[in-house]
Lab assay of single mutants.
Amino acid sequence: MPSETPQAEVGPTGCPHRSGPHSAKGSLEKGSPEDKEAKEPLWIRPDAPSRCTWQLGRPASESPHHHTAPAKSPKILPDILKKIGDTPMVRINKIGKKFGLKCELLAKCEFFNAGGSVKDRISLRMIEDAERDGTLKPGDTIIEPTSGNTGIGLALAAAVRGYRCIIVMPEKMSSEKVDVLRALGAEIVRTPTNARFDSPESHVGVAWRLKNEIPNSHILDQYRNASNPLAHYDTTADEILQQCDGKLDMLVASVGTGGTITGIARKLKEKCPGCRIIGVDPEGSILAEPEELNQTEQTTYEVEGIGYDFIPTVLDRTVVDKWFKSNDEEAFTFARMLIAQEGLLCGGSAGSTVAVAVKAAQELQEGQRCVVILPDSVRNYMTKFLSDRWMLQKGFLKEEDLTEKKPWWWHLRVQELGLSAPLTVLPTITCGHTIEILREKGFDQAPVVDEAGVILGMVTLGNMLSSLLAGKVQPSDQVGKVIYKQFKQIRLTDTLGRLSHILEMDHFALVV
Score class of each variant (00 low, 15 high):
Thr262Phe: 04
Lys211Cys: 04
Glu9Leu: 06
Asp249Val: 05
Asp79Ala: 02
Gly151Arg: 02
Gly256Ala: 07
Glu213Met: 12
Ala114Tyr: 06
Ala48Phe: 10
Glu201Met: 04
Asn228Leu: 05
Ala60Gly: 02
Phe99Ser: 14
His66Val: 12
Ala231Asn: 07
Pro200Leu: 10
Gly263Val: 04
Ser27Leu: 11
Gly256Leu: 04
Cys272Leu: 09
Asn228Cys: 02
Ala48Leu: 02
Lys36Cys: 13
His67Tyr: 02
Pro41Asp: 07
Asn194Lys: 14
Lys177Arg: 02
Leu81Gly: 12
Asn113Trp: 06
Asp179Trp: 07
Thr87Trp: 02
Lys247Met: 12
Asn149Thr: 02
Glu37Gln: 11
Asp221Gln: 02
Ser254Phe: 05
Glu270Trp: 02
Asp234Tyr: 10
Trp208Val: 08
Thr13Pro: 09
Thr150Leu: 04
Pro21Tyr: 02
Ser73Ala: 10
Leu124Gly: 07
Pro273Asn: 06
Ala186His: 02
Asp221Pro: 02
Pro46Thr: 04
Asp129Trp: 07
Ala183Leu: 04
Leu56Asp: 11
Ala231Met: 09
Ile127Arg: 05
Gly246Cys: 02
Glu40Gly: 13
Pro46Arg: 04
Thr191Ile: 02
Met169Val: 07
Ala69His: 08
Gly205His: 06
Lys83Val: 04
Val180Ser: 08
His218Ser: 02
Leu77Val: 10
Pro170Val: 02
Ile127Phe: 14
Ala183Val: 04
Arg125Thr: 04
Gly116Asp: 10
Ile261Pro: 04
Met126Phe: 07
Ala158Asp: 09
Gly139Cys: 10
Thr191Ala: 02
Asp234Arg: 05
Ser27Tyr: 07
Ala155Leu: 06
Leu220Glu: 02
Ile167Ser: 12
Pro49Tyr: 02
Ile261Phe: 02
Leu220Pro: 04
Gly134Ala: 10
His203Met: 08
Thr53Asn: 14
Arg18Gly: 10
Thr150Trp: 02
Lys271Trp: 08
Arg209Ile: 09
Arg58Tyr: 02
Ala107Leu: 02
Pro2Gln: 11
Val189Trp: 09
Thr260Pro: 02
Leu105Asn: 04
Ala186Trp: 02
Gly139Met: 05
Val180Gly: 02
Ser217Trp: 05
Pro64Cys: 04
Pro49Leu: 02
Ser19Gly: 15
Leu42Pro: 09
Asp79Val: 12
Thr53Cys: 07
Ala8Glu: 06
Cys15His: 10
Thr13Leu: 09
Tyr233Lys: 06
Leu101Cys: 07
His203Ser: 10
Leu230Gly: 05
Pro74Gly: 08
Pro145Cys: 05
Ile143Gly: 06
Asp79Cys: 08
Lys97Gly: 14
Arg121Lys: 07
Gly258Thr: 04
Arg45Tyr: 02
Thr87Gly: 06
Glu131Asn: 13
Gly185Ala: 09
Thr262His: 06
Asp86Gly: 15
Gly134Ile: 02
Met89Trp: 04
Ala237Thr: 10
Asp133Ile: 02
Lys137Val: 02
Ala155Asn: 06
Thr262Trp: 05
Gln222Ala: 06
Ile76Ala: 08
Pro88Ile: 09
Arg182Asn: 02
Ala157Ser: 04
Ser61Gly: 02
Val180Lys: 04
Gly57Cys: 14
Gln243Met: 09
Lys36Asp: 02
Pro78Leu: 12
Glu201Phe: 08
Asn216Leu: 06
Gly116Arg: 11
Asp249Leu: 05
Gly263Trp: 02
Ala159Phe: 02
Pro78Glu: 02
